[in-house]
Nucleic acid binder design. Sequence first.
DNA 1: CATGAATGAGTCTTCATTCAT
DNA 2: TATGAATGAAGACTCATTCAT
Lengths: 206, 206, 206, 206
Amino acid sequence: MSPSAERRRELLSTAAEVFAAQGYNATTVRRIADEAGMLAGSLYYHFDSKESMVDEILSTFLDELWAGYEAVLGAGLGPRETVEALVTESFREIDRHRAAVAIYQKESKHLAAQPRFGYLTESQRRFERAWLGALERGVAEGVFRADLDIRLAYRFLRDTVWVAASWYRPGGQHSPEEIARQYLSMVLDGITPRERQEQQERRERP
Amino acid sequence: MSPSAERRRELLSTAAEVFAAQGYNATTVRRIADEAGMLAGSLYYHFDSKESMVDEILSTFLDELWAGYEAVLGAGLGPRETVEALVTESFREIDRHRAAVAIYQKESKHLAAQPRFGYLTESQRRFERAWLGALERGVAEGVFRADLDIRLAYRFLRDTVWVAASWYRPGGQHSPEEIARQYLSMVLDGITPRERQEQQERRERP
Amino acid sequence: MSPSAERRRELLSTAAEVFAAQGYNATTVRRIADEAGMLAGSLYYHFDSKESMVDEILSTFLDELWAGYEAVLGAGLGPRETVEALVTESFREIDRHRAAVAIYQKESKHLAAQPRFGYLTESQRRFERAWLGALERGVAEGVFRADLDIRLAYRFLRDTVWVAASWYRPGGQHSPEEIARQYLSMVLDGITPRERQEQQERRERP
Amino acid sequence: MSPSAERRRELLSTAAEVFAAQGYNATTVRRIADEAGMLAGSLYYHFDSKESMVDEILSTFLDELWAGYEAVLGAGLGPRETVEALVTESFREIDRHRAAVAIYQKESKHLAAQPRFGYLTESQRRFERAWLGALERGVAEGVFRADLDIRLAYRFLRDTVWVAASWYRPGGQHSPEEIARQYLSMVLDGITPRERQEQQERRERP
DNA sequence: CATGAATGAGTCTTCATTCAT
DNA sequence: TATGAATGAAGACTCATTCAT
């Protein structure tokens, strides 16, 4: 990687951190420059605009994310294993791109309105297809419950995973894999212990 | 209710809608005024500032939320029933105050930095205490699994519920109670059908 | 006086007080209304505009001032007695119209730019003529020193008297007449005791 | 001096001129910018706010003023010479900082209400102590008349000198020293010629 | 590559004024 | 006479962006 590309990457990383912490709109170009140890105007040697900074941050992140997702989706796994792998992969992405994920969460909705960010909507659709597909297959094969609204379950899973970016701190107590394991455990089996589930069931449908 | 209080409420409702849709920072006072059919300056007859608008929106919402929560917490329910009631109550609040909830989700973090919004932090703490308390009691009484990280479970539940405000539309297909029921079903029992859970378990711990 | 004229006078007095305390520009119509126990809009039943309020305050004051001055100037007094009488009359006006005088001092310069306030410039000219006339006559008659720049002396006298409005409080320790006496004493005879003046003189022009 | 400090000084000088001419409140930032040949927003590259402009203008002026005053007060002069030197120094300051003095006169009262401008009140107190001290010593030593209210005399002197800033134009007919000489002559000896003072006295206290 | 100094569009806010009731 | 609600023009300030050096 050329030294200028390296600098660029550093600057984007700084910018992402600030965007994630303060929100895109509330972040001034000057603040980013301060953090990078330069003057606001100087950033424009490296980037066309503030917008092109988020753009590059988000598209870089999504490219990596989809590389990981596609590997999972193309691996020929069963639906349950697919969901497990997608969740695990997601937490790994949160670990690697925490700031970008946080930005994506907070800003993608209103950024997507601009044509330049069309790929956000596109990505969301692919996302939905991947998850809904796995869930539907799972229901068909009997590995997921058939009595749940599948779209509701999809939103539940999606949100559940990504919101974690708002509190996750890399290098914390839990590895991404450990967090994924716990999340999956809750999502797949619930927080009620097995015995209790049986009692409960007997009580509800005698 | 006096007509002026009524007008105030209307305007706040309009403002909340715009804040929720565009974000607090990205929302101009002029946009709110447009939406309300008046000029930007006219809003200042009713409110001190843009900030005092969010303030009133959020504090009104939180007051109502806590009224509901306190009723639940004071009812002497068991931990599982408490969780069920809190979740149901939360979806009811999302139903009634969708915009306020969305604003709370997106903006409370950086608003809380200002002294004026200290009650946001305060509310978050009460929130945490209420949920963690119920979860801990549940684990102690054996109605929740003991093998999960309880703080992780708390975040999982909390986020899972409130993020729903980002996609929920009142008057849609599902009533808040129905959504709560499905969410609870997933959270408590998991998305894997019972029989499968047993098979899975036998495979994992033979 | 009709009751409405009485109310008008009250309101103008209130307005004058606020204008004097905060400055014309810095005074909001609302502040005046607050002080008068009504709403801002209500003032417009009594007055055309904020401007017309100062206008009436200043012109009323100047009318009375000139009535007093003309009486003095027409009395056929000698130059020294004229100066004494003008100074005394001025302090009486400060006593009666403190607020108006303060406004006149602070605002007349930039108000005078507007045609509506042409009378301010006019009044200033009359003022200058009256004082310069008395001083010139005094010099000619030998009752005032001939070695002083007469325009400088005029400004000295004028400022000296009117600035007092900035600290004078009616009903204070000194009556206007007493203040006038002391001011005249300083202006006419100086603050150096007689004997010293003679010594000083002998030293300077031996 | 660095070129940027020089620019800053130029801009402050322009601002001071406008503030003095129109009053602080009535002066728009845009007007200052116009006068400086730039756009309103550009001023904010150099200064934080309109307020910080007056702040810097006034504090710079007062710093210089007090440097001069302290030199006089520390010189071990007698009371009469002290008064002469203070008056002369004051007119020199008016010559150098006419605009700042005019602003000080008109605005210090209401600016002083803000904590940021506390030094104005402080300066006023030092001012009063310096002048009153000289006058009191003078009375004690018999070089000033004992029959005058000393606080009245103080105000008389103070106002008399500083109001001159409202009409003084640097480079005019009289040098500051010449104006000081004439003012002192009036203040110390009065505008009545010596012989007349004696006659007058004989008439009043036979 | 970076700085310093600006631009210009836009934001929140203020305030004198209007007017139906 | 006074109120309540608005208007509309203007003001201070912010900020992404530009560009000569």
